[in-house]
Amino acid sequence: MDGSGGTPAGDATSGAAAVEMNGVIALLGGFPALSGLDLTVAHGEVVLVAGPNGAGKTTLLNVCGGLVPVARGSAHVLGVDLTGDRAALRHRVGLLGHRNGLYGDLTVSENLTFWSDLVGATPEETARSVEAAGLAGRLADVKVTALSAGQRRRTALAVLLIRRAELWLLDEPHAGLDPDGRGELDALIRLAATSGVTVMLASHDLDRSRDLADREITVVGGAVVEAA
């Protein structure tokens, strides 16, 4: 377990790691998208997951989110054993893939109140999240389909804030955003990180994302090849 590729030097609290993976193999329709991956991510860390297309970055995030089962190996996320019942993990993880998970026909505030009602967030908490995501005011009553790509992304992240997700798994969050959109998104991710959220960020936009991340790992062939 110790000495795995992803363990940062001098990590004194490996028992309290947010993500702990050993020899994880995960399958996509019979294909080993993860082929024995070792990784440790500490609480509150922002980790950039780099690597070529098809390396297994998305699958890694999906495994952490409990969407793709662990076929072999051991994996714990936020202390929950992924090879067992993943139900306990579910509400604590936020996964944002290529899609935003929003209802296009509803407005921003309707989408957000839907989620805050579902998870039982108070109106103050919701208002704070909306404020943090820069969605207060005029934007709140705009239909999601009428938003820019960046605004939609921020709405999706606001849902994660409202859900008080402890681990954010962001798959190419910058894709399709203009420079302004990226800047606003980065600010929001930084804000979440300073409040103790652990972030795993898969990205091609390495220069941009390095500024955000505490640490960078590279995934190739479904395993971590280099941890910086």
């Binding site: 080993p32 082929s35 024995g36 780099a50 960078e216 790992i217 590279t218 190739v220 062939g221 479904g222 395993a223 090849v225 280099e226 910086a228």
Partner: peptide
């Protein structure tokens, strides 16, 4: 898939 890892082990991050 593992062999992809070793063959590209020299690739920098």
């Amino acid at each position: 898939r593992r062999s992809e890892v070793t063959s590209s082990g020299s690739i920098g991050g």
